[in-house]
Each structure stands twice: as C-alpha cells, then as structure tokens.
C-alpha cells in the first residue's frame, strides 16, 4: 500500500507570461517504510516534486493521493490539516524557529495538533533523546551547530509520528561527516519507527545510501531502482 503517490502530475510555473514546465507528467508511488532518495541535476524538479508530496502546492494537472485521498479537492485549511497529521518536514537550512528552544521547536507540531502539555513533554523529551541531543533541550537554534540543528529538525519532523517525512537536501548545509551522521540517524529512525523517508539530494554518497533511488531530469523520471 502506498503512503503517497502521484499520477501523471504536471506542474508548470508561470514566469511572467511564459509557462515554465517543472514536472512533465510524473507517475510515482511511495510505499510504506521506504527510504527513498530523489536525485537529479539542479532544476530537474526535485523541490517541485517534494512540494506536491508535501501538500504544499497543487499540480497543474494530474493527481496526488495521500492514503488514497485526492488532495486536489482540498482547501488550504484542509491541506494544512493533512500536513499536520501525516507529513513531517526536514529542510536544507533547518528552518527552526529562532526564538524558541530546541524543546519548544520540537513541541511546536504537537501544539498545532492540540496535544495536552503533559503528553507533549514526554514525547518531546523521548524524541530529543532518540536523536541524541536530550541535553540540549534548553538551547536556542542560534546556540547550536548545524548538525545539532538538523537533529532538532528531525526530531520535530518525527515527534508527531507522521506517515512520511520529506527532506529537501537535508545534508547540503552541513559538512560531510555530520551529513553522514544525519543520514545514519534518518536511517535509524526509518528502521526503528518504520517511518517513510523521501529526500532529495545531489550527493552521490547520499544516493548510494538510499534503499530506493529515483533519478529525475527535466521533470521526468529517468530511472527508479531499489537497492
């Protein structure tokens, strides 16, 4: 059973009066528990693809299904609910809320889900421990290294036990060694929590690390192989 899939998805961006095609009819299905890398040269449409999977945007034509629900029909508030309940995000530049501590950043999605404070606290601490920064709970993003920030971001993405996690070039902003640690962590989480991961990358090392590698070029799938 697929967690998320798209059928014949086309995405065109309007730049002035010109339509720039970013995705040219993609059909793709992600299965539960998969650890998928999406690779391709710059401008090939990786981010655009993740936008659609992430319910951040709607395709120009074609369909996107999350647990067999078509997202095309949903209004912005319903899309927000879908993201809230089903999807976790990890960003290239971490994108933590600078005014909140690590603990509060991780807590944020639970607040949006209206979880009870007591419940939140245990889950956040568990999560911070499991990404290995339990002792940094009180720090703000500005007081942490890139790797540590990205761990917080992973914790934030996983704390609500989403169906799948989207990560756009999660290692691009950190050094190779730390990047490897982050990948290891993601893989660990994938195995421990059976969380589906979909991440984009340029990096051949990262590609090799993935269980499934989808290569795209000019908005079309070039190859799709499981390792």
């Amino acid at each position: 059973m697929s967690v998320v899939k798209m059928e014949n998805a086309v995405k065109n961006y309007k730049v002035g009066k010109v339509e720039v095609p970013a995705l040219r009819g993609l059909t793709l299905s992600i299965e539960k528990g998969e650890f998928t890398a999406i690779a391709g040269p710059s401008g090939s449409g990786k981010t655009t693809l993740l936008n659609l999977f992430g319910c951040l945007d709607k395709p120009t034509s074609g369909k996107v299904f999350i647990e067999e629900h078509d997202i095309i029909t949903l209004n912005p508030d319903q899309l927000a609910d879908v993201r809230n309940h089903h999807i976790g995000f990890i960003f290239q530049s971490f994108n933590l809320i600078p005014v909140l501590t690590a603990f509060e950043n991780v807590e944020f999605p639970l607040v949006l889900l209206n979880e009870l404070p007591a419940h939140r606290k245990t889950r956040v601490m568990e999560m911070l421990e499991s990404v290995g920064i339990g002792d940094l709970a009180g720090r703000r993003p500005g007081e942490m290294s890139g790797g540590q920030q990205q761990r917080v971001a992973i914790a934030r993405a996983l704390v609500k036990h989403p169906d799948y996690v989207l990560a756009d070039e999660p290692t691009a902003n950190i050094d190779t060694k730390t990047g490897q640690e982050i990948l290891d962590l993601m893989r660990e989480m994938n195995q421990k929590h059976k969380t589906t991961f979909i991440f984009s990358t340029h990096d051949p090392k990262v590609m090799r690390f993935a269980r499934r590698l989808i290569m795209i070029r000019d908005g079309q799938i070039e190859s799709d192989e499981r390792q």
Partner: peptide, 11 residues
C-alpha cells in the same frame, strides 16, 4: 515553514 508544519491562515 510554520504553514508547512500545518499552521492555518487564521493562526
């Protein structure tokens, strides 16, 4: 980002 995490326009 906050909206990506599921925050609504109202919020």
């Amino acid at each position: 980002m906050m909206k990506a995490l599921g925050m609504k326009n109202r919020q």
